[in-house]
Lab assay of single mutants.
Amino acid sequence: MEVRTIKVFTTVDNINLHTQVVDMSMTYGQQFGPTYLDGADVTKIKPHNSHEGKTFYVLPNDDTLRVEAFEYYHTTDPSFLGRYMSALNHTKKWKYPQVNGLTSIKWADNNCYLATALLTLQQIELKFNPPALQDAYYRARAGEAANFCALILAYCNKTVGELGDVRETMSYLFQHANLDSCKRVLNVVCKTCGQQQTTLKGVEAVMYMGTLSYEQFKKGVQIPCTCGKQATKYLVQQESPFVMMSAPPAQYELKHGTFTCASEYTGNYQCGHYKHITSKETLYCIDGALLTKSSEYKGPITDVFYKENSYTTTIK
């Protein structure tokens, strides 16, 4: 009895394709271990004539594949690729409408935090270190965002349907971005203890939790000093293409032309909904596939993004 075979390709990165001759009487799992086709788990399936010449994702289970996976995804987590594939199996079914010149995501599976993050990423200057993220990001900007969303979920250790947080998501993504040249110098002034300067680099240099107003941050924000008295913390120097200011959701007025974009969060910790506000020729609110415009805006804002380049204080 002759062994019926077909020729397929296996890959971990969709760049390096490895030619395989597979036995049609055995499952993919018996031949390769966990195997995925377009995100779908085909591990328990036997090869079919229609699979001839198709590319299958496999887990990096030998040295060659491990090197290829690390170079593309910059992670050695053995569960990463499987999590990416199972997320992709959902995100490829989502709709990605162009809204006001940006790629958004039609609401499904509690994905409003991903839509808000995706919209924000198209408006701030950011370059990702893992080629996987950078490639998928370019495709997302062009309207094909399924891979990018699935990668975000995998890097953030999230599953489809789980509630997510924009600030946490951005923080994970910033860790995989090139923020080497970003720098922030802060000064804390206390009447009792004097003053202390701190220099922050990388992710810490672009994120701040405690106030939404970048102007206020430049002037000074009140913080408790270690001595128990009130101290003032203010920005001395900022070198970065953008800054992200966050605070627990509270009524906040966004003035046209003073910011790049913002995240609105309605609801409580267990259950809520994100919308995205962007400042173009007027203010726009993007909620999944829905767009509304207004000249002014007041609502429960939790993150505001500002364009920056270089700032030095005039406070002496």
Rank of each mutant, 00 (worst) to 15 (best):
E2I: 08
E2H: 07
K7V: 08
V8L: 08
V8Y: 06
T11Y: 09
T11Q: 07
D13S: 08
I15P: 05
I15E: 07
N16C: 06
N16L: 08
L17F: 15
T19K: 13
Q20F: 09
V21M: 13
S25L: 12
T27S: 10
Y28C: 07
Q31H: 15
F32G: 08
G33M: 01
P34C: 07
L37W: 13
D38R: 09
D38W: 09
G39Y: 09
G39I: 07
A40T: 13
A40I: 11
D41E: 09
D41V: 05
D41M: 09
D41P: 11
D41H: 06
V42D: 06
V42A: 10
V42L: 13
I45D: 14
I45Q: 11
I45Y: 14
I45R: 12
K46E: 14
K46T: 12
K46N: 13
P47C: 05
P47R: 04
P47F: 05
N49A: 12
H51Y: 04
H51E: 08
H51Q: 08
E52M: 10
T55P: 04
F56E: 03
Y57R: 05
Y57T: 10
Y57S: 07
Y57P: 04
V58I: 13
V58N: 04
N61D: 13
T64S: 13
V67D: 14
V67K: 10
E71Y: 05
Y72Q: 10
Y72L: 08
H74G: 09
T76F: 14
D77C: 12
D77N: 06
D77P: 02
D77F: 03
P78E: 15
S79L: 14
S79H: 13
S79Q: 15
G82D: 15
S86L: 09
S86N: 14
S86I: 10
L88K: 01
N89Q: 13
T91Q: 04
T91G: 04
K92S: 10
K93E: 11
W94C: 05
W94V: 07
K95T: 13
K95Q: 15
Q98N: 10
G101V: 07
S104P: 01
I105C: 02
W107T: 06
N111M: 04
Y113W: 13
A115P: 01
T116H: 05
L119R: 03
Q122I: 05
Q122W: 01
Q122E: 02
Q123K: 07
I124A: 01
E125S: 08
F128D: 06
F128C: 00
N129F: 05
N129H: 13
L133E: 02
D135F: 07
A136Y: 08
A136G: 07
Y138M: 15
G143D: 02
G143W: 02
E144P: 01
E144L: 07
A145D: 03
A146P: 04
F148R: 03
C149R: 03
C149P: 05
C149K: 04
L151K: 01
L151Y: 06
I152D: 08
L153C: 04
A154D: 00
C156I: 05
N157K: 14
G161T: 05
E162Q: 13
E162R: 02
V166L: 08
T169M: 06
M170K: 04
Y172R: 13
Q175V: 10
A177D: 05
N178Y: 07
N178D: 13
L179T: 07
D180A: 08
D180K: 10
D180M: 09
S181F: 11
V189A: 09
K191A: 12
K191E: 15
T192W: 09
Q196R: 14
T198Q: 13
T199K: 06
L200R: 07
G202D: 02
V203R: 12
V203N: 04
A205C: 00
V206C: 04
M207A: 03
G210K: 01
S213T: 05
S213W: 02
Y214T: 04
E215C: 04
Q216N: 07
Q216G: 06
G220P: 11
V221S: 03
Q222F: 08
I223Y: 12
K229H: 10
Q230P: 11
Q230C: 03
Q230Y: 14
A231T: 04
A231F: 01
T232S: 06
T232I: 13
K233Q: 01
Y234I: 12
L235Y: 02
Q237S: 14
E239V: 12
S240Y: 02
P241I: 04
F242I: 01
F242A: 08
V243H: 02
V243S: 01
M245E: 00
M245R: 00
M245A: 03
M245K: 01
S246E: 01
S246I: 03
P248K: 15
P248G: 08
P249A: 05
P249K: 05
A250M: 12
E253T: 15
K255W: 00
H256Q: 13
G257A: 04
T258S: 12
F259Q: 00
F259Y: 03
T260K: 02
A262P: 00
A262F: 00
A262V: 07
S263G: 02
E264R: 00
T266Q: 10
T266D: 09
G267F: 14
G267D: 15
G267C: 14
Y269G: 15
Q270F: 15
G272K: 02
G272L: 06
H273W: 02
H276A: 03
I277R: 02
T278V: 13
T278L: 12
T282N: 08
T282I: 06
L283A: 01
Y284E: 14
I286R: 06
D287Q: 01
D287Y: 00
A289V: 11
A289M: 09
T292C: 08
T292G: 10
S294G: 08
S295M: 13
S295L: 14
P300F: 15
D303E: 04
F305M: 12
K307L: 10
E308H: 04
N309A: 14
S310G: 05
Y311G: 07
Y311H: 13
T313W: 12
K316Y: 15
